[in-house]
Design a protein around this nucleic acid. Sequence first.
DNA 1: GAGCACTGC
Length: 698
Amino acid sequence: MTSTAQGELKQNPKTPVASRFSMRRQKIAEHRKSLPIASVEKRLIEEVQKNDILIIVGETGSGKTTQLPQFLFNAGFCRGGKMVGISQPSCIAAVTVAKRLAEECDVQLGQRVGYSIMFDDTTCSSTSLKYMTDALLLREALVDPLLSRYSVIIVDEAHERTVHTDVLLALLKKVQLDRSIGNKGLEVEAKTNDEIGGVLRGCQISPLKLIYNCSISTIIMSASLDARVFSEYYGGAKALHVQGRQFTVDILYTVHPVTDYAALVITIFQIHLEEKPGDILVFLTGQDEIESVERLVQERLEHLPEDKRKILPLAIFSALPSDQLMRVFAPAPIGFRKVVLATNIAETSITIPGIRYVVDPGRVKARTYDPSKGMETLDAVPTSKAQALQRSGHAGREGPGKCFRLYRQREFEKLEDSTKPEIKRCNLSNVILQLKALGYDDIFGFDFIDKPSSAIVKALAELHLLGALTDDCKLEKPAGDQMARLPLDPVYSRALILANQSNCLEEMLITVAMLSVESIFYDPPREKREEARTSRNHIASVEGDHLTYLGVYRESNEFLEAENSEEAEVDQTLRKWCKDNFVNSRSLKHARDIYRKIRGNVEQMGFNVSSCGNDMLEYRRCLAASFFLKAAQRQMDGTYRALESGEIVHIHPTSVLFRSKPECVIFNELMQTRKKYIKNLTRIDPVWSAHHHYNTEE
DNA sequence: GAGCACTGC
């Protein structure tokens, strides 16, 4: 949207400002009118007025995410200071959509239209249309259980079925019920609201409207199955379809199943040599696959005549430093064809311009969770039909496209309709703690759309061991309440509470912030590997990963202070330090954001942020006490035994302790890939851990 | 000597 407007300005440098703006406004108006959803505005509003719950199945490009909130605003749903809340599964979606809508409405972002995400709240008291992450909306319920400022809540992308979306679905069902009771004149509701500091002092609370958007593709039934699941969950709620504006995508299957990279690379080159211009997007499972394919493409390229070599392979996955990530958004040089080798990141998180061809081998790395062992597994598995559709859709964003599925059609028919909801595949201790803090004591009776029973048992047990729940599974005060309010894994929240008692809260804040982000260190290109190794040896601590992370944070901070950077230059200075030290600057910046946030949180709780300075013994003892549930002991053969589950595990090669193999360690993560690996570890004295066990047993 | 799908509070 922005680029169109700027393009216009560049073409007419002498056009007076006022006229340029009116031209822009006219263009926006035309664009809005051309959206498929524009023709059904009246009908949509009528349905919202008639139904308390509505399911909208809006195809890609229908304009539902930006237009529907405006329709509701125009229809008066924001009168009296009420808001329409639109929840998104990710920050990036919430931010970009809010920015686009503000521009469309020609209002300043943060006034009528705003967004609110963990690190950035642009809303104010006059905000009517509020975009946010679904996780943040859940948090808001902690402060305002009736979500009393909202007249309508739109849960966008509900078909993605993230954990937060699933919890939100159940929570909103309850809130809606509570508010409809309140509306029948129960003074109690208003009083409760008043106590919580709600804005509706003494007023009646109007019923809450709920709209579930699920963006789908036209082609298969699995999508409408999704809508049916939501509809049934809400007792037969009405579902409406809104047409999209997607170009046709031809789907091609192979005659024989494709099992090797060579055949995959042949497909890429066939497209390159035989098809019309347009970039190619290839979905692969992970970094190693991407790197192998990239090598094969390069090798094959050298065997082609000069004039056929105009192909530009680009790798993209989340651990990539941001400057390399950005390269896929730039158009290929004239006459060149981009071949983007991507993980799932290109499926929903980002949209790459220029794509007309999709190559889909039909596999994806998926996380599963085994509650009995407390272990996560990351395996490559076949995609679902819905995922395959999502992938092929990327070929039809800018024009008619083609999707090459590297398997047979009958194999497609055998795929699952949709991916298993995340709530059935992950550790739930965080979610359960949230629900407890929201006052839902009967977790087994909680109305999940898909119930994850054994993970609930495990989560309750873990929360009890961490001291967040009492023996009869009620929220422990104040510890459980404090832990629920921190935006962290409960184990990390617990570590902060212990550190507060041990005089090393400052160090633990840094540690858990660093543990909460992925890939602090990154793989440098081959020619820099030796240099990186020397640098890493300098910064690594013999005690383990936690002290190493602490060192990275402190050193980068000292560098910032020494450079005495202005506020605006901090990011740049930090990037320089990261580059010199082979640290992923995006990750470090993220960790700094988390640090600032949780430091604010604990200060609000009345904790005094003190430091143990260089007394690392104090800090290491605190680590051991915090993570005593996850200890591992070295075996005769050099492998480790995890004490909780009894599993035989290995130290992950990214750990600084990979070579030194101390006798006893605590760790934060146990994950099975090719082997069972423990990650993020620190050497401990076995006596500490035993001692702590003894204390907790009493 | 060998490995890291993707989000989010």
